[in-house]
């Protein structure tokens, strides 16, 4: 076994070996090593997520650089108040997920469940705001791609801009894929709340909560960049 080949296992590690925590898999030396490996794996996954979104950010940068005036005008038709509200909602959900991890590290399971459910509620609120934003656009023929046919007082001027469809294609794809991430996060956070309710987590083992927290913060970070780039400038 790995612990036997290690030159000098510390007392702590020996104690843990006797202790044999249920969550500790045999190919790991210690709980700490298992936790660190899981976390590093999550960071590697998050980098692939960052690169997924960066492809779309590059598309945004290229088309904005080619058509700065059109992008500024098209961005003016997005609802800044809704965008700002959603930013605050997502930042708050990031705080609640951080507080859920804070609670489970201290074995406060009940509190952890409340914070997870709070995060779930905020994420749902984000999607509701997003739904109303999308519907307001669709009503005026502002669709992604070839269906782009803006009409109505607030949107008419977009019809004459050759690059306006590109802005809205980028807008819908970026916020759409971000929204898919929010929905996936909601499902995972719901499962976590259920697991916590069944007593699966404690300060000894809360790896899924920690990793989901990392994922959720990344979703938040993507929105931190999307909000000013799409809505404000």
């Amino acid at each position: 076994m790995a612990t036997e080949t290690a030159p000098a296992p510390t007392e702590r590690e020996e104690a843990e070996h006797d202790h044999h925590p249920e969550h500790l898999q045999h190919h790991f030396v210690s709980s700490k090593q298992q936790f660190d490996s899981a976390k590093l794996g999550m960071w590697v996954f998050l980098i692939t997520e960052v690169l997924l979104f960066s492809g779309m950010f590059v598309a945004y940068a290229v088309f904005r650089q080619w058509n700065p005036d059109v992008f500024a005008a098209a961005s003016g038709t997005l609802d800044q108040a809704m965008g700002a509200a959603n930013t605050v909602v997502l930042l708050t959900s990031s705080l609640t997920v951080a507080l859920a991890i804070h609670a489970i590290k201290q074995d406060r399971v009940q509190r952890c469940i409340y914070y997870l459910l709070g995060t779930l509620g905020l994420a749902g609120g984000f999607m509701v705001v997003k739904y109303f934003e999308y519907m307001a656009k669709f009503e005026h023929g502002v669709f992604p791609g070839a269906a782009f046919d803006p009409h109505g007082a607030h949107y008419e001027h977009l019809a004459e801009m050759t690059a306006a469809p590109q802005f809205f294609s980028i807008y819908f794809v970026m916020t759409g894929i971000h929204g898919v991430h929010v929905i996936i996060g909601m499902i995972v956070i719901g499962v976590l709340a259920l697991m916590a309710w069944r007593g699966s987590f404690s300060s000894e083992w809360y790896t899924p909560v920690e990793l989901t927290g990392l994922y959720w913060h990344l979703v938040d970070i993507v929105w931190i960049f999307l909000f000013p780039l799409l809505y404000l400038i």
Partner: peptide, 25 residues
């Protein structure tokens, strides 16, 4: 570190960071 008790970021820091994020928004 799990059995030593994991490292805990104090709640006050989390709240301050949140406040800073709102101000920056």
């Amino acid at each position: 570190m799990a059995h030593d008790g994991p490292h805990i970021v104090p709640k006050s820091i989390l709240l301050k960071v949140f406040g800073a994020l709102i101000v920056l928004t």
